[in-house]
Write a protein that binds this DNA or RNA. Sequence first.
DNA 1: TTAGCATGTGAATCCTGATTCACATGTGCG
DNA 2: CGCACATGTGAATCAGGATTCACATGCTAA
Lengths: 212, 212
Amino acid sequence: MSAATPPLLAGSSHRKPAGSGTRLRLLTAAREVVEDGGYGAASVLAIADRAGVAAGTLYRHFASKEELFVELFRAACDRELDVMRASADGVPAGGSHVDRLETVLATFASRALARPRLTWALLAEPVDPLVDAERLAYRARYASLVADTLRRAIEAGELPNQDVELTAAALVGGCGEALVGPISPLSDAEPSPERVVAAIRTFVRGAVGDRR
Amino acid sequence: MSAATPPLLAGSSHRKPAGSGTRLRLLTAAREVVEDGGYGAASVLAIADRAGVAAGTLYRHFASKEELFVELFRAACDRELDVMRASADGVPAGGSHVDRLETVLATFASRALARPRLTWALLAEPVDPLVDAERLAYRARYASLVADTLRRAIEAGELPNQDVELTAAALVGGCGEALVGPISPLSDAEPSPERVVAAIRTFVRGAVGDRR
DNA sequence: TTAGCATGTGAATCCTGATTCACATGTGCG
DNA sequence: CGCACATGTGAATCAGGATTCACATGCTAA
């Protein structure tokens, strides 16, 4: 009932390829499988196969399939958050806070459009409860990042006062949904990412009450 | 392999309680179970129990569990759409198209807040592929309703020109997401519906570029 | 060399529900 | 009455996957 936590970076033994190659391989395989088949296609067998190991091996590294997913999920979301944050910081010079806000969400959108399946999986696809809980948590974090930026803009007098939390959630959700059309497997139109992102920028500025 | 389609309104035989009471009872039971336990809790057994019949009976009326869900889903969504449409028509007199737009989404929000579980199920909860497909279709319909209203407002010169489809999707998604916080089982805060709806009205007007 | 540990294997096992089916029951009609 | 049809029953069966486990196979250290 203990174990479950593999070497990680070890401290006892000597050379170890670092972080157990197989563990990482499994994580990667899982991401790949999810990316092009969704969670539905991500059976233990499928993942193990892709990673080039036997099903049982997965359980040497993760207590359960769910746990693997949770880890995968966290990694993916953290990466997204980092990139979004970074993009905001990348708006230096005379950029306004509203510019930063717009940039954060445009980044979110661009990346989503670039990896539709994964985004779908992160945002909305059916999953086990454990992962779903994680999802809620991360949505909140996305919204929180947006909320911070929004708050700053308001404090700077760039925007009218408003319910920051709610607007932030609505922005994240709005962008997400606007993306779902283009993203979803059934989408027929498939408009150019540029147009979508442009429209999203407009949407964001309007939604927060920015009068250009 | 045929059958599956029960009496409905009959045409052959004589008196029949109309539409088979049991069928309806099953539909209702299913909705109830979903409303307070989500799809996860809605096993064939649970539904049948609630309806006061045996599991096998369900298959006298529906080809499969999925089919029952699809029907349930359609009924629920259609009802919502009707109410939303009606609410728009309820803005008579000198009301602007933007007023109508705002009303439609406020109605959406109010109703969602009143029946959190069901809304969650309709909007985002994990389901079988068949139902999920239905969900996409209905989301599109919601967005379409919003898009129509939005388009009219633009044509009337009340709003600046914009990507109507995308904005509509973003509005629906934004409202949905803004609602998820208050709605979700984990929500701690639980702000008053009034405040949420008010914030949503503001959000909508801004998002479409309405300068009050 | 050998014990010990980490890791891998994959067939067997378990679990969770959906779905089926052989058996009532009831009602109308010839 | 007795057949035919609609409907209901619920135990048995199936199916799809996750999880386990008894058995390798190294590699490291004494």
